[in-house]
Every structure is written in structure tokens, then in C-alpha cells.
């Protein structure tokens, strides 16, 4: 990875929904560069475009205009299936609502991205078990999400994100459904995992205390970046 080019580079990105009078400019000229290994927190009031930005960076959506280079690759022109391949090999998501498959064991949930990576059954199982061990869920591999607490479900989701060995983890309000104590535990886990693996993490939150864990804070208002500053890196 040459240092000359940032790992993630958004230039003059616009994302416009609707047309004419009903036009909504969710992103209105956003420039963000992210280097590998950064932990970026994106904050801002509701409707500021932070989730839209995250979906774009996560290759779930495509911009109306502007360029988005990911790992040297132009993403804006890719179709759905090509973006799926980028997600499969480089990205992982952690959501506020955990988004685990219901009535499916923790182990099977963690194996899910590995199935699409085409990894064989035995290796899949090993990597999923290892990931669950890393997040402190050893012994709960066969539990269904419904048998786990919110904090434990989020740990399964983190294990799922890690199992696929992604370059970037995108977290959308990862502690939004948890109490303060659990939130702290989850954030400490994320920070520790980042320190061990050098993951790039991009996290959307509206909780300042949670954002404190990041190494950089981007503040968005009305679809633009209003403030972008380094934080004291917890790692």
C-alpha cells in the first residue's frame, strides 16, 4: 500500500435523492481521505448525511456524482454485484440492531461471510470459533441470538465482522442499543481488536463519549463536512 494515496478517498461526493422540488441533497460535496489503520468517528445531527456517507463508503450505495477511490480502485462506476465483491473481500459491518440471523446459532452467524468468501467448511469453523473466542463468547457458540443479551449479540456481530479478515469495519451506532456499562465494554473490545490487527474503523455515532474512542472525528452538518480533527488516539 503506497503512502502516496489514501486508502479511502472521497472527492466532491454528492448523493441526491428525488428530483426537482422533492430533491434532497443528503451529501452535498463531501471530501474525506482516510488512511489505513485510522479509527474515524462520524458525528452530526440527524439528517446531516452521516449514515449516507457510511453506506457510500461501505459500497452499499453509489454516489450521484463525485469520485470514490477505495484501495486505489474507482468505486463510483461499479454495479451492484461488483460492489458486493468489494464488500465481501474488504469490508465488514457492525450495526446498532446487531443484524444477526434469527434462529441461527452464533457460530453459523459468524461463518456467514466466510461462506460467501468460498472458504471450506473446516477452515470456516476454525476461524469462526477463533473469532468468537476473541470477543469473549467461548462456550456460547451454539446459542441463538434470542438466547443472548444485547451486549453478547453485539459481540457475535463483531466476531462476524472480524472472521472475514476485512480491511475496514464500518460501525453504525454500534452501542446505540446498549447501556453505558455494556457500551464501554464493546468500545474497549473494538479498540483492543484494532490495536491487535491494525483495522481501519469508521463509526457513526451521536454519543460524544463513544466518539472519544476514535483517533479522528468528522463532524457533518447538512451533507457537508464541517469539522475534521485528530483526537488523542486511545490506541
Amino acid at each position: 500500500m503506497p503512502h502516496s494515496e489514501p486508502y479511502i478517498s472521497l472527492k466532491d461526493i454528492r448523493r441526491i435523492y428525488g428530483q426537482g422540488d422533492a430533491e434532497v441533497r443528503a451529501l452535498d460535496g463531501v471530501d474525506i481521505d482516510i488512511k489505513r489503520g485510522e479509527f474515524v468517528a462520524i458525528m452530526g445531527p440527524s439528517g446531516s448525511g452521516k449514515s449516507t456517507a457510511m453506506n457510500l463508503i461501505g459500497c452499499l450505495d453509489r454516489p450521484t456524482s463525485g469520485t470514490y477511490r477505495f484501495n486505489g480502485l474507482e468505486i463510483a462506476g461499479l454495479d451492484g454485484d461488483e460492489r458486493a465483491l468489494i464488500r465481501r473481500h474488504y469490508l465488514a459491518f457492525i450495526y446498532q440492531g446487531y443484524n444477526l440471523l434469527a434462529r441461527t446459532s452464533a457460530l453459523d452467524n459468524v461463518e456467514l461471510p466466510l461462506i460467501y468468501k468460498g472458504i471450506g467448511k473446516r477452515e470456516r469453523r476454525e476461524r469462526a470459533l477463533h473469532a468468537l473466542d476473541l470477543v469473549g463468547l467461548k462456550g456460547r457458540e451454539t446459542h441463538d441470538p434470542s438466547q443472548l443479551s444485547g451486549g453478547q449479540q453485539q459481540r457475535v456481530a463483531i466476531a462476524r465482522a472480524l472472521a472475514g479478515d476485512p480491511h475496514v469495519v464500518l460501525a453504525d451506532e454500534p452501542t446505540g442499543n446498549l447501556d453505558t456499562q455494556r457500551s464501554r465494554e464493546i468500545m474497549e473490545l473494538i479498540v483492543e481488536l484494532r490495536r491487535k490487527s491494525g483495522l481501519t474503523i469508521i463509526m457513526v455515532t451521536h454519543d460524544e463519549e463513544i466518539a472519544e474512542y476514535a483517533s479522528r472525528l468528522i463532524w457533518m452538518v447538512d451533507g457537508r463536512v464541517q469539522q475534521d480533527r485528530e483526537l488523542q488516539d486511545a490506541a
Binding site: 461501505g58 452499499l60 451492484g80 454485484d81 458486493a84 465483491l85 464488500r87 465481501r88 473481500h89 469490508l91 465488514a92 459491518f93 443484524n99 444477526l100 440471523l101 434469527a102 456467514l112 461471510p113 460467501y116 468468501k117 462476524r160 472475514g164
Partner: peptide
């Protein structure tokens, strides 16, 4: 629908 969303997010392609 949500399950399908999860699968798409982890990199499932249309044909899969």
C-alpha cells in the same frame, strides 16, 4: 427481507 439484507451486506451477489 432483513436476512437478505444481511447476506447482501456481507458480500452475497444477486445470483447467489
Amino acid at each position: 427481507t432483513r436476512e437478505i439484507g444481511i447476506r447482501l451486506a456481507v458480500g452475497a451477489q444477486t445470483h447467489q
